[in-house]
Write a protein that binds this DNA or RNA. Structure first.
Length: 274
DNA sequence: GAACCGATTAACT
DNA sequence: GTTAATCGGTTCG
């Protein structure tokens, strides 16, 4: 069994190859980029279509998929607007994982010293940041993790998803986390450990580089739905995580999270006093 | 090519 | 609170 082999004592550590992962997992996010939003073998089970003027009364009680117009907001606005919305991931076996977005960070583009697009840098890696709002930007970090971003309005601007509150498919998320986590001591992850970090949520939702540059408004394997109506969550604005603490841009309050939500990755008590 | 390093995690004290 | 793990992407010579 490839996973066990890779853990043999003294053996050079080896990440699961795509082929190996696909043997273990029901879905390793290896679907090719769909040419059409809902083409392929499961077209008849496609995700809800974008809201539009033709929407009938039938859909008023059903989840509405967020479309390109929603993502077309300045980064900091979009980062706040994401809070409370529902991220849906459909695996290749049609299992749907649902989670509420509870923590985000905005990266504002070339002038933002903490952004990958700082100084106007545009490379093969960060191309997604420069594509139309709603385009995903997935990058590898520390050689072993992924981070998921959504392009916003503004050249080279995007929003990093940092934490989710799992709603549906928790046992699948738990299995994905255990299988993909390097520590993998066999212990079961608690609910609040499933998606409480930018790379944890990528493991829990089986998101990898194959999602880079996909369109969240039309993709068949992942989309966003308007969260259920309810009281407005209290939003905390704090400094961003992992970008150092020196410099003008490190001080800006571009991280947003739902006050009191136990699924947030890091609380900032000082920011909460404000 | 080589050197450097990171929008993190998990295990440890 | 500290630190090892781990390697693709970027930069530099």
């Amino acid at each position: 069994f490839p996973l066990q082999l890779s853990r043999r004592v003294g053996q050079k550590k080896q990440r699961l190859s795509d082929a190996e992962t696909s043997q273990i997992l029901p879905d390793a996010a290896r679907m090719p980029y769909p040419k059409e939003p809902c083409s392929g073998p499961h077209a008849c089970l496609g995700p809800p279509t974008t809201t539009g003027p033709q929407r009938s009364i039938y859909f008023l009680n059903h989840p509405a998929r967020l479309g390109s117009e929603f993502f077309d907001q300045p980064g900091a606005h979009l980062a706040r607007a994401f809070l409370g919305q529902v991220l849906v991931r459909r695996l290749t076996d049609n299992t749907e994982l649902r989670s509420r977005i509870v923590e985000t960070e905005a990266y504002l583009g070339p002038e933002d010293d903490a952004a990958h697009s700082r100084g106007g840098r545009q490379t093969a890696r960060n191309r997604g940041m420069f594509m139309k709002p709603g385009t995903l930007y997935v990058y590898t970090i520390y050689g072993m993790y992924f981070c998921l971003n959504v392009s916003s309005r503004g050249d080279g601007a995007c929003v990093l998803l940092r934490a989710l509150e799992p709603l549906e498919g928790l046992e699948t998320m738990r299995r994905l986390r255990s299988t993909l986590s390097k520590g993998a001591s066999g212990r079961a992850f608690k609910d609040h450990e499933l998606c409480s970090g930018p790379s944890k949520l990528c493991q829990a939702l089986a998101i990898d580089k194959s999602f880079d540059q996909r369109d969240l408004a039309t993709d068949g394997a992942m989309w966003m739905e308007r969260g259920p109506p309810g009281p407005e969550p209290v939003v905390v604005a704090a400094t961003r995580v992992g970008i150092g603490c020196k410099g003008e841009w490190a001080q800006k309050l571009l991280r947003f999270y739902v006050l009191g939500n136990p699924f947030v990755s890091m609380v900032d008590r000082a920011a909460e006093q404000m």
